[in-house]
């Protein structure tokens, strides 16, 4: 499945690959497609990010240039949003990891004797996928709204200040990000734990390891490939997300993330160079972080 996209998986013994013209025929259409609709857009984005307004031109009209000041401008203007994006994404990733690991462990290790239950629980994990991303976020907005019984209940119990809100706060945005990307975290960890040889855990217990020691010295290291995939699959979309942070959903005026400003610059104020520069910045930071993270956790050779 795609959820193992970032996992390392030991290469199976394969017959020696052949060299043939057929390979070119098989590869060409798809690769050309990606060049045309992935690589060229990236180049277009870089070009756009350096454009300057047409002198005395209309609103939203730009011409080719090398205006690197665009980058300086967006960083000074949107520094807060950039930092906020990565902070929220990091928090959501940590919460999703803490939330998902026990579930993945339960399904992948504890339920091994009951494959049917295992499959059923997996279906439940991915179930939120099948209800529209936007609608499930809106559902949380209603459930956690100021007049909802959860919030009024918490206020009645004095667990929440009478004039406090949940929706519109950074906590709500992080909550939404966490919820929405939980399946991306759970499935790769499950895939790794499902392959875990429990005889190694027995060997650990036999060699005087207490349950907690066994967990941290054996289970966690052996599921590292799954953790790495899960972290990447959660962090990358969370950093670029703008639904949860949007004031129409769980966010407010002070929660906007880099995605929100890319959207408003591109689609509302038609400031294409600023939107493009922000996109390039976002992508660069993510690529640097991903490379560093993957190097550090020792799982290279992606895809």
């Amino acid at each position: 499945m795609a959820f193992t996209a970032f996992s390392t998986g030991t290469a199976k013994e394969q017959a020696p690959r052949r060299k043939s013209k057929i390979a070119l025929l098989l590869l060409l259409p798809g690769i050309l497609y990606l060049l045309l609709f992935f690589l060229v857009p990236l180049v277009a984005l870089i070009a756009t990010s350096l454009q300057e307004p047409v002198p005395f031109g209309d609103f939203g009209q730009y011409q080719t240039a090398f205006r690197w000041q665009n980058y300086v401008e967006v960083i000074t203007t949107y520094g807060d949003q950039i930092i906020r994006s990565f902070t929220y994404a990091l928090l959501a990733t940590i919460f999703a990891l803490l939330f998902s690991y026990p579930i993945a462990y339960f399904i992948g290790v504890k339920c091994r004797q009951w494959p049917l239950l295992q499959n059923l629980l997996l279906v439940l994990v991915i179930a939120p996928f099948f209800i529209s991303f936007l609608l499930r976020t809106l559902a949380w907005k209603s459930i956690l709204a100021d007049e909802s019984f959860i919030v009024t209940g918490l206020k009645a119990l004095s667990l929440m200040a009478p004039d406090a809100h949940f929706t519109g706060t950074p906590a709500a945005v992080v909550f939404g990000l966490t919820y929405n990307f939980i399946p991306f975290m759970t499935l790769p960890i499950y895939a790794a734990l499902e392959r875990l040889d429990t005889r190694l855990l027995e060997a650990g217990r036999d060699l005087y390891a207490k349950p907690a020691t066994s967990f941290f010295k054996i289970t966690v290291p052996l599921s590292m490939a799954g953790i790495v995939s899960g972290v990447l699959l959660t962090f990358i979309p969370a950093a670029g997300d703008y639904i949860n942070a949007s004031s129409r959903f769980l966010g407010g005026s002070s929660t906007s993330m880099i995605g929100n400003v890319i959207e408003s610059n591109f689609l509302v104020s038609l400031n294409y160079p600023a939107a493009a520069a922000l996109s390039i910045i976002l992508m660069s930071i993510i690529l640097v972080l991903v490379t560093a993270y993957v190097k550090r956790s020792g799982t290279e050779d992606l895809l």
Partner: peptide, 17 residues
Amino acid sequence: PFERPVNTVFQSYALFP
């Protein structure tokens, strides 16, 4: 198991990879 003065050589060896 971890409290017993017993060690096992497992059939699969169960060496930590």
